[in-house]
Design a protein around this nucleic acid. Structure first.
Length: 224
DNA sequence: ATATCGATTATCT
DNA sequence: GATAATCGATATG
């Protein structure tokens, strides 16, 4: 049963192995209502879900193992802290859409909008466990097959996972995660993490003490 | 194993 | 003009 997608639980080290595109195509997408909540609830609930790009032989997929919640207006570390701007407009729209931004002038980061329209919470995707399309991910990351055997280098880190999935702002900002046909979607194979660790968000200077980072305990794919 | 630094641009003060 | 939700390279213990 090691590779079954039907298992409903898994240990932290072994989340079920690789998944074939035909199987991924049959998994249900996570519905809009899932995202229509406070990001502090959405973030831990996203752990174990699967981010999927494309279809057929080109399918890329990774299990979400690390995320951070950003609370919108009022959270000084959030891009939406001071209201609507051209960059963060997606966050003020409906939940379950991709917010992609450029950071430090060269790296992209991926989030999903949360909460009802007009309330700008979001969840940052920080690390994935690669499940399908590993060769394409290594290629996108510009690393060799040999290097890519390190579990963290393919998609362990918010900018790394964007490189691995070829996620950019012009291409992907605003895409709907909840449509079965979407190029970028989130699906559920029933996997539920055994244990979740909560800690401080990484790399921020404002409100650094808030416990809004969540990851699957023991996962080798978490960014640090 | 940990520390420091440079890259490069959108956004805000 | 300063800062930033980062990464990879380099240096050093």
């Amino acid at each position: 049963m090691r590779n079954s997608s039907l298992r409903s639980r898994g240990t932290s080290r072994d989340t079920g192995g690789l998944l074939r595109p035909e199987l991924l195509a049959r998994l249900p997408v996570v519905a809009r209502g899932f995202y229509d909540r406070d990001p502090r609830r959405v973030a831990p609930a996203l752990l174990g879900k699967i981010l999927v790009r494309g279809s057929g032989a080109r399918t890329l997929a990774g299990r979400i193992v690390e995320v951070e919640a950003y609370l919108g207006t009022g959270d000084l570390a959030a891009h939406a802290a001071f209201g609507l701007t051209p960059r963060n407009a997606v966050l003020f729209g409906p939940p379950g859409h991709a917010y992609v931004y450029l950071t430090y002038g060269l790296h992209f980061c991926l989030n999903t909008s949360c909460m009802p329209r007009g309330d700008a919470g979001c969840v940052l995707f920080r690390a994935l466990e690669p499940l399908a399309g590993l060769a394409a991910m290594a290629s996108g990351r510009g690393i060799s097959h040999f290097q890519s055997r390190n579990p963290r280098v393919l998609a362990g880190g918010p900018a790394r996972l964007c490189q691995a999935f070829a996620i950019t702002r012009p291409r992907d900002n605003g895409k709907d995660f909840t449509s079965k046909r979407s190029d970028l979607r989130i699906v559920d194979d029933g996997f539920v993490p055994e244990k979740i660790v909560v800690g401080k968000r990484i790399g921020i200077t404002k409100s650094p003490e808030l416990p809004l980072r969540f990851y699957i305990a023991g996962s080798e794919f978490v960014s640090r």
